[in-house]
Design a protein around this nucleic acid. Structure first.
Lengths: 248, 248
DNA sequence: GGCCAACCTTGACCCAGATCAAGCGCGAAC
DNA sequence: GTTCGCGCTTGATCTGGGTCAAGGTTGGCC
């Protein structure tokens, strides 16, 4: 199972609408005040680039709403999405200069940012923030490595099922689950973005989505609205061991 | 270019033969003494498993000599190597329970370990250790994501060239470089292990190695001893932008 | 020295997924 | 309402790398 960071009961970062789980989860009120000082919001339109690979990145922060993706590109234009940032996910590299990959707004996007320099200072003075970020980063590393298995060894159908599983899981943690087993969500990605994440072409994504629909693993209303009648079935299609899914 | 953690001028962890760059890089003598208390060595034979995925991992540590690999396996036996640990690389998940993947000794292996519980305690009292580990983990995350591009979008030939580039680079940092441009090293991996790392079959690895040899990109003496007459050429074959390699 | 077992190479064939190409559906602009 | 364009689907064909199979090489062990 993909070990996406799961939302723990989070602490609101003062009045911030998004819970900075990484940063604020264990902060005292005065620490939150310090963070409040260096906090600001940024909005992006779908398709806009937040930072280019290699550019200086003068902030760290969290996604408030919308979706951002981390993308790597080769000179000849081949691209691979290396991370998907959903609301509450953390972006940034405290202690590191420059972005390692493009950060792109996949949908309209609002981010809550902290200026990097003073944030690093606060981190020095507030050890548990570094601790929390370390835990978060280890989780991201796990997720990235799990995704390496998807990219390196899974078939196209398994790749699609894996992606749908992740989105279903992340979505389920945000919404009250009315009907356990069944999951309904809107795909926040175009077929092309899915292809970029899965190391496939958009045609293959489209074909496999049709196949999963034909075989009753998913239902589609329009192109984006997905119903998963049986999550276990979807996980089996993803080739993951099923226990993991049940446990998580 | 793959952003493998580069060895910075490291601080020896007391008499430890290996430089724990992650842990000890900025430690004061008394901090090193505390680490010394909870330090021990472990040896493994090639092929032995250090920890199984999911098992409790009661230590963190560094590779002293030999190579360990992080491996994920599906029920049907498909495996994907998700990390390669060379001497001085750090293993472990402070603040996290259980291993997320198998850790396997690819060659004979010596590790220098710290007991996890007391290590975490030291980390709480020594903020710069957490900071340093965070930086390290961010670098590993970068490397993992760079590898996702390799797995998702590169051809077999580019994959092989990418792997050889990494090993050449890591090796160059350990050995005095007599002849810049030319690099010589012993492949520490079997064809099968290379295949597991690259998401290929061992036959394809073998064919592409032969092809690179035929085309003069590499020379082979025996199966393992590799000479790279022109590193830039190899980097081009890897499909990386060449500047990165030169800059690094 | 001779045998055996890993490890590796090479060939022949096949298939999953890429590529090329045509057309559909639907919302936005006029 | 018509047109345009984007996102998506589907079909036909091609091909890189997988699969299956047959040796070759090398080094350890008796």
């Amino acid at each position: 199972m993909l070990k996406q960071p799961i939302l723990t009961a989070p602490h609101n970062c003062a009045e911030c609408p998004i819970r900075h789980q990484a940063v604020c989860a264990r902060c005292e009120p005065d620490e939150l005040d310090a963070l409040e000082e260096i906090k600001y919001y940024r909005s992006f339109e779908a398709g806009q680039t937040v930072v280019w690979s290699g550019d200086q990145m003068d902030f760290v922060g969290s996604v408030v709403s919308g979706i951002a993706s981390l993308t790597q590109t080769m000179e000849d234009g081949r691209t691979q999405m290396v991370g998907l940032l959903l609301p509450s996910d953390f972006v940034g590299r405290p202690g590191r200069n420059g972005a390692a990959y493009d950060v792109v707004a996949t949908t309209n996007l609002v981010m809550c940012c902290f200026r990097k320099k003073p944030f690093e200072q606060i981190m020095l003075e507030t050890p548990h923030i570094a601790q929390r970020l370390l835990e978060m980063t280890l989780d991201e590393l796990d997720a990235a490595r799990e995704w390496m298995l998807v990219l390196g060894r899974k078939t196209a159908r398994e790749k699609i099922a894996s992606l749908l599983s992740i989105i279903a899981r992340r979505d389920a943690t945000l919404k009250p689950n009315d009907n356990p087993g069944t999951t309904v969500f809107d795909l926040p990605l175009t077929r092309e973005a899915m292809a970029d994440y899965l190391g496939l072409t958009l045609e293959t994504v489209s074909r496999q989505m049709s196949a999963l629909k034909r075989d009753g693993v998913i239902q589609l209303e329009g192109k984006r609205h997905v119903t998963v009648p049986d999550l276990i079935r979807l996980l089996e299609e993803a080739g993951d061991d099923t226990d993991g899914g049940v446990m998580a």
